[in-house]
Write a protein that binds this DNA or RNA. Structure first.
Lengths: 161, 161
DNA sequence: TAAGATTGATATGTCAATCTTC
DNA sequence: GAAGATTGACATATCAATCTTA
């Protein structure tokens, strides 16, 4: 057992600020979507890729890959969105195991109505507060961390085999 | 109504990477705490300040200010932690409206047992992946965003008055 | 009246078990 | 057996309403 390397003051401050910022920002984003369009951030995460896809539809599997959500969460949330009329589900024509999700006219209308306010909020509390150097740094750091987490998953899978 | 300034490619990439990273990292942190110590990230957020306080206890109000949680979430979560024996509640001696939360011996034991693995994970997937310049940049950016969000809240309160 | 805290209803996220099809 | 998806049980988060005391 190796001696623990505790965080020094700067490291701890970064870690704390990361948490505080993440919570406060996601709360703000949620409030904006809810107040203006009666959508949750979770709704938004699914509605955007659907609205950007050519056929306004996508396989559940692909939505999962894009968002990083697990199957269970996806299934539950799509069911709720379906019950609110935002999306519809139907069997995948090319793979009988699959399910396709399609944006309804109401869902499309919701995305279009919410997008300007959403982007405005992203700019106001995030993007527009950063210089282009900072944007580059943050993107690089985020992608580095995701890569580390993803590599690890792959390694674990390999070990399991 | 002003024309919407949509995100350009670099901005969109940062915003996406921010989401992906946040989700993947918080998932990893949660798994580490759960597997090693049967604690959630939420437990951890409350246990740490309690364990660092001089008397191993704190007012609910102050826990709220530190974590940014709202009263309701705090109350529910403290109740659950109490039922698991991690903390105890008692009336605040100086303000009859208040409640104090105290770390139990079991709670203290849980913190001490989990801390090394937690820090190790924070380092492995976050802190140790960054240069000191990047740490400084990220801290500054996070704090700037929190300030923007907080100022806004204060303004709203002022307007409401 | 405002602050501190709790509660119940509801929405959301996670885990394990299950089912069907590849 | 593995992949795609769903379900039920449970844990957690949020909102509005409530209660007590400053």
């Amino acid at each position: 057992m190796v001696e623990t390397r505790w965080l020094d003051e700067k490291e701890a401050r970064m870690w704390r600020s990361f948490h505080t910022m993440g919570r406060a920002l996601s709360r703000k984003m949620d409030q904006q979507l809810t107040n203006d369009s009666n959508l949750s951030s979770a709704d938004w995460e699914l509605l955007v890729p659907l609205s950007e896809s050519t056929e306004q539809q996508m396989r559940v599997r692909d939505l999962g890959r894009l968002t990083g959500w697990d199957r269970s969460r996806l299934s539950h949330h799509i069911r709720r969105m379906e019950s609110r009329g935002l999306v519809a589900r139907f069997d995948c024509p090319t793979d009988a195991r699959g399910t396709n999700v399609e944006l309804t006219p109401m869902g499309r209308h919701a995305v279009e109505g919410a997008a300007p306010g959403h982007v405005e909020t992203v700019r106001r509390y995030f993007v527009d507060l950063l210089s282009s150097e900072e944007i580059a740094t943050i993107t690089a750091v985020n992608e580095r961390i995701v890569a580390a987490l993803t590599d690890e998953d792959t390694e674990c899978e390999r070990e399991a085999i």
